[in-house]
């Protein structure tokens, strides 16, 4: 597993629900067809209200001009990130758009579980709320060994909570690889 994640920040607020992450009308595309699945990247975060999209200023589109990839690969959120619908299309669309980590104060449990079990990206919990500390566009570095988040744009370092018991699933890649490692399902 890569021990350092570098990327550009996209900052959102509290209670970002999965209808905002991917509105329901888009839940019709195939997640397995290599071309069709790109639609999910294109519409990722398209339900976020404009004034909340890319804080502190807002009105910053997550993806531009119909592109399926975003220049922002680290999402910063507040409390209860990913609440609402269980749609796995939410973490999937973020991965398709190029997200490699989320740092939020807390998560809704289904979204957290989906992120870990599906191996889409790593959901980190921050010790304090990062929403006011980081601006959309800041250059960030997450160090897994030290459990820190560095904001290179402001030269500040923040503590992240330990990934805890789910680290084994994250290191294995997803729940299937974890189950193969532990002998619960036969190796492929």
């Amino acid at each position: 597993m890569n021990k350092v994640i570098e990327g550009v920040a996209y900052v959102l607020g509290n209670d970002v629900d999965t209808d905002q992450i991917i509105p329901a009308e888009h839940l019709v595309y195939s997640l397995s067809d290599p071309e069709e699945r790109k639609n999910y990247g294109k519409f990722a975060m398209s339900g976020v209200p404009a004034d909340q999209a890319g804080l502190p200023d807002g009105k910053i589109p997550f993806t531009e001009n119909g592109q399926s990839e975003s220049k922002y690969s680290i999402i910063i959120g507040g409390r209860n990130f990913g609440c609402g619908s269980s749609r796995e299309h939410a973490p999937a669309c973020m991965e398709i758009a190029g997200v490699r980590a989320v740092v939020a104060e807390s998560y809704a449990r289904i979204f957290y579980r989906n992120s870990v079990d599906g191996g889409f990206f790593i959901p980190f919990e921050s010790v304090k709320c990062m929403v006011k500390e980081i601006k959309t566009g800041d250059n960030l570095v997450i160090d897994l060994n030290k459990s820190t988040l560095t904001n290179r744009s402001s030269n500040k370092i923040y503590e992240l909570k330990s990934l805890g018991e789910v680290i084994e699933i994250i290191e294995a890649g997803n729940i299937f690889e974890y189950a193969r490692k532990t002998g619960m399902i036969p190796s492929a």
Partner: peptide, 15 residues
């Protein structure tokens, strides 16, 4: 409620 991945895991293992 669960996501697709967990549901697929159940389909294969029942757990």
């Amino acid at each position: 409620g669960i996501g697709n991945t967990d549901a697929a895991f159940i389909l294969g293992t029942g757990k």
